[in-house]
Simulated assay, not measured.
Amino acid sequence: MFDALPTLGALPWAVLAVAALLVGVSKTSLPGLGTISVALFAAVLPARASTAAILLLLILADVFALAIYRRHADWPTLIRLIPAVVAGLIVGAFFLAFADDAWVRRGIGVILLLLMAATLWQRLRPRIQACSPRRRRLERAWYGSLSGFTTMVANSGGAAMSMYLLTAGFSVKAFLGTAAWFFAVINLTKVPISIGLGLITPATLVLDLVLAPAVVIGALIGKWIGARIKQSVFEWAVIGFTVVGAVYLVI
């Protein structure tokens, strides 16, 4: 696929540029847009190849997210998520080694839609009492492992992590700061795994170099949005964009 990048037409390049722009925006203001970026990359490139291509752009966007929100992270939350996330990454690596493009795309889409349904039900139902410590542990295990799995398979871990942070009631800056550190570490961890699976190639690097300016522009736009967005708008935007991206992956 990547052996002849110039053969990509004007429309595919435009779609990839928009997706790269959304990568930057998603990291610095609207995490749900990340799922749409994944869907756009998968629309132009084979699903497995798109996973590697977008990974390096996500790392570039992580740099900007850390520069803006690094002081707002909730470290106890991050530390408690580590075991479940590592388990999810391992399972995702094995899945990615054997699954074909159709399984990768549709499988992630179905998982995200189920996750959205569960999250909406949880947000809309009456809250009778606070969550018990046992339930919090179960939620960490579920969301953490799912985030590790989906981020390894299709760089869609932002959806699972977003739902966890929303249910935990994080403010916009605490949400973005915690997510920034989480995915900066996770995405760097995925690089040697992706190289080992043969997904990152010299042509991948060329493609990402061309698209890097769009990520930078998107990150700066996202910084402007993040400083002004209201909490309620932020939360529903995260949910809405994630649902749109998940539906696309399924169909």
Results as ranks from 00 to 15, higher is better:
residue 162 S to V: 10
residue 96 L to G: 04
residue 84 A to K: 02
residue 247 V to Y: 00
residue 130 A to W: 04
residue 59 I to Q: 06
residue 205 L to F: 10
residue 24 G to R: 01
residue 167 T to L: 14
residue 175 F to N: 06
residue 51 T to R: 01
residue 207 L to H: 05
residue 6 P to M: 13
residue 39 A to L: 10
residue 140 R to L: 15
residue 49 A to F: 02
residue 12 P to T: 13
residue 80 R to I: 13
residue 115 L to Y: 03
residue 71 R to F: 10
residue 164 Y to Q: 10
residue 107 G to Y: 07
residue 233 V to H: 04
residue 158 G to D: 06
residue 249 L to S: 02
residue 165 L to Q: 09
residue 241 F to N: 07
residue 153 V to W: 00
residue 113 L to E: 05
residue 33 L to I: 14
residue 67 A to Q: 07
residue 92 G to R: 01
residue 63 V to I: 15
residue 35 T to C: 04
residue 202 P to T: 15
residue 122 Q to C: 11
residue 67 A to C: 07
residue 181 W to P: 08
residue 47 A to N: 06
residue 128 I to H: 03
residue 43 A to R: 06
residue 49 A to Q: 13
residue 155 N to C: 14
residue 151 T to E: 05
residue 59 I to C: 09
residue 8 L to M: 13
residue 65 A to P: 02
residue 166 L to T: 08
residue 82 I to A: 10
residue 239 I to C: 04
residue 149 F to K: 06
residue 120 L to P: 02
residue 207 L to P: 07
residue 221 I to A: 09
residue 226 G to Q: 04
residue 27 K to V: 14
residue 200 I to F: 05
residue 221 I to W: 00
residue 110 V to E: 07
residue 135 R to K: 10
residue 116 M to H: 05
residue 231 Q to R: 06
residue 211 L to W: 02
residue 12 P to I: 12
residue 240 G to W: 04
residue 54 I to G: 02
residue 232 S to A: 12
residue 33 L to W: 01
residue 234 F to S: 11
residue 131 C to R: 10
residue 204 T to E: 09
residue 207 L to F: 06
residue 61 A to L: 09
residue 36 I to Y: 00
residue 152 M to Q: 11
residue 99 A to S: 14
residue 170 F to T: 10
residue 104 V to Q: 03
residue 36 I to L: 09
residue 214 A to T: 07
residue 25 V to A: 03
residue 241 F to S: 10
residue 94 F to D: 15
residue 204 T to N: 08
residue 23 V to P: 01
residue 71 R to E: 13
residue 14 A to T: 13
residue 179 A to F: 02
residue 135 R to C: 10
residue 31 P to L: 07
residue 135 R to P: 04
residue 112 L to R: 03
residue 116 M to P: 05
residue 105 R to N: 07
residue 110 V to D: 07
residue 193 I to A: 01
residue 146 L to S: 09
residue 37 S to N: 08
residue 247 V to N: 01
residue 7 T to I: 13
residue 58 L to D: 08
residue 181 W to K: 04
residue 73 A to S: 12
residue 69 Y to D: 09
residue 38 V to M: 05
residue 132 S to Q: 12
residue 52 A to P: 08
residue 146 L to E: 04
residue 184 A to C: 14
residue 233 V to K: 00
residue 199 L to R: 08
residue 92 G to C: 11
residue 127 R to T: 13
